[in-house]
């Protein structure tokens, strides 16, 4: 519990953070809520020479509607995502996911940007954000670019972020009326991290048919996986429990989950189907389907 010695910078602006990042490059790590990085440093699994603290950079937190999307500042704490009135009203599935991260202390300090940039394959937010079709705003000294979630998450702790880039915001498209999203998670009994989780976005036609479905799975690979076979099986179908169950049963098709001392690959495939079903059912209900 004693990190190696390191230097610390408290950036006062995004520009200053980018300058420091450019100067120290791979010797530096950006510090947001610190709830993944600091424990790793205490265990000396991470030994950055410098920390660039984003905590005092103005304008990086908060939730607002920006055109057809929800704009969430990267430094917005999980607790604020979970309790945001806008999110609870328009995207309760995202609030669900934020509310089951870690414990109260983690949710009060940990940030959405930190979770996304850290890209832990057992984290909650990357899964729901993938299901919701979110994209991420990345700033560098040469300007800003926006990367879709599916292009952003590459593998274990690996993202599309360049060494000189800072994740500043998350954009989540606001779903049309008749849409519903939900998140369901089997937590690891020790860490509380995802063993398997599922996020679903269902757009329902007034007739009760599924206009479109996006389903993402966590814990099944080094990055969130889209459950393509499940989505296809829902497309255009009436959202009955039988249809949902049959579609969810295909959730793990084509996946090759990694085993650990707790759960076998076979178990993960099984519960992926169960949690996909639960997430789809909740999402369909929120979309107005009676189940």
């Amino acid at each position: 519990m004693f990190p190696a010695s390191f230097g610390y910078f408290a950036a006062r602006s995004l520009e200053e953070a980018l300058e420091l990042l450019t100067e120290y490059g791979e010797d530096a790590k950006l510090l947001a809520g610190g709830h993944s990085l600091i424990p790793a440093m205490k265990l000396r699994l991470a030994t950055p020479r410098y920390l660039i603290d984003l905590g005092r950079v103005p304008g990086l937190s908060g939730v607002r509607i920006d055109g057809e999307a929800l704009a969430i500042g990267a430094l917005t704490a999980h607790a604020d995502v979970a309790s945001s009135a806008i999110i609870r009203q328009r995207l309760p599935g995202l609030a669900d996911a934020a509310s089951v991260i870690g414990d109260v202390q983690v949710r009060n300090r940990g940030t959405i940007g930190g979770s996304v940039a850290h890209a832990d394959p057992a984290a909650d937010l990357p899964v729901i954000l993938t299901a919701l079709g979110a994209s991420f705003v990345l700033a560098s000294p040469s300007g800003k670019r926006t990367v879709a979630a599916e292009d952003f998450f590459i593998d274990f702790y690996t993202t599309a972020l360049a060494p000189n880039e800072v994740l500043t915001g998350i954009r989540v498209p606001l779903p049309p009326s008749g849409a519903g999203a939900a998140y369901a998670k089997l937590p690891h009994p020790a860490s509380g991290y995802v063993v398997v989780s599922a996020g679903a976005l269902i757009i329902r036609q007034p007739s009760g048919q599924c206009a479109s479905a996006r389903v993402a799975l966590g814990g099944m690979a080094g990055r969130p996986l889209r459950a393509g076979a499940t989505e296809t099986a829902l497309q255009g179908k009436a959202l009955t429990p039988q249809v949902i169950a049959a579609a969810a049963a295909k959730a793990a098709e084509g996946s090759d989950p990694i085993e650990d001392a707790y759960a076998s690959a076979e178990y993960k495939r099984q519960v992926a189907a169960v949690y996909a079903r639960r997430a789809i059912e909740s999402a369909a209900k929120r979309a107005g389907q009676k189940i």
Binding site: L43, H188, P189, A190, S191, Y193, A261, Y262
Partner: peptide
């Protein structure tokens, strides 16, 4: 429910932290 100190095939400690040793 979940506490179990597990040693691997080579005798290595597999559950040496609260990340994988499940205290209720």
């Amino acid at each position: 429910l979940g506490e179990h100190m597990i040693f691997g095939d080579e005798g290595e400690v597999l559950t040496g932290s609260l990340m994988n040793y499940a205290v209720p």
